[in-house]
Design a protein around this nucleic acid. Structure first.
Lengths: 136, 136
DNA sequence: TGAAAATCCTATTAAATCGATAGGGTATAG
DNA sequence: CTATACCCTATCGATTTAATAGGATTTTCA
């Protein structure tokens, strides 16, 4: 299942993508328009700012805005920040590799074999989509 | 993340696949060889039996065995039983469709748009793999 | 016929995760 | 200097997951 964090994060990013770049939009506005708990969204946007997707501005007239153009924001990067590793098991993860403790040999593991294909298929999708591509 | 249930279930299926068909293998043997909690595996195999993948035999010399040939067991079916829906959001699910309560329109939803592609990519993988294909 | 073997079944538990909330701190515009 | 809006940490309740417990049922076979 896709986490609500990821869902909300994606919705917020697309909301900002159709706005003027570098013009701050307030959390409250996004939350209201996208039916998201404001406090929860707050923490998600904070995350997206710390990871370099968003800029922010405090005080009156403040808010969040996209730092890069939608066409330059890859879904691979967004998904890794919001949802975590793209691989379904650590032993096939590119960025978060870990050996299985229970499994003696990855080469002869059927789970590994299947999940490698799944990882590649998902990567292909995320690499072929920027934020601009999923706008209406 | 792939659940342990799915991981263990897949390992058990492949274990049975390399054995003679219709010859029962005991839970204890599979659990020991694949480093799986026996009791947990018990409930998983029970599930796989109820959903038509395995047959069972009680008493001495009993155990579980594959009902179909590995080449006839599609990963789409296995994954749906063990892991649940293949889609990451219900609004793009083929077998478990549900409308989002928060989202006014699927057609203009960026999450929907992205997750449709992800679903199709995953389906493609699972449809192209039978149990026979992921054996060593 | 009875004891051992093995699956069947339900309930419970411990830990982790998730989604949401609380409550104040900090910077900035005007 | 005050209102605004982001910043930050902590906590909570619900759900899910992985594992365990404990016995019921069926079958084999001596």
């Amino acid at each position: 299942m896709l986490s609500k964090k990821t869902k909300y994060g994606l919705k917020a990013l697309t909301y900002l993508a159709v706005k003027e770049q570098n013009v701050p939009v307030q959390i409250a506005e996004i939350a209201k328009n996208e039916n998201i708990s404001q406090k929860f969204l707050e923490s998600i946007l904070l995350d997206l700012r710390k990871t370099g997707f968003l800029g922010s501005k405090k005080g009156k007239g403040g808010g969040y805005y996209l730092i890069k153009r939608p066409g330059d924001i890859l879904m691979t990067d967004v998904m890794r920040v919001l949802e975590g590793p793209i691989a379904m098991v650590p032993c096939v993860s590119l960025n978060f590799y870990e050996k299985c403790t229970d499994c003696p040999d990855e080469v002869t593991c059927s789970v590994n074999r299947l999940m490698l294909q799944v990882r590649d298929a998902n990567l292909e999708v995320y690499r072929n989509n920027t934020l601009a591509d999923i706008l209406v």
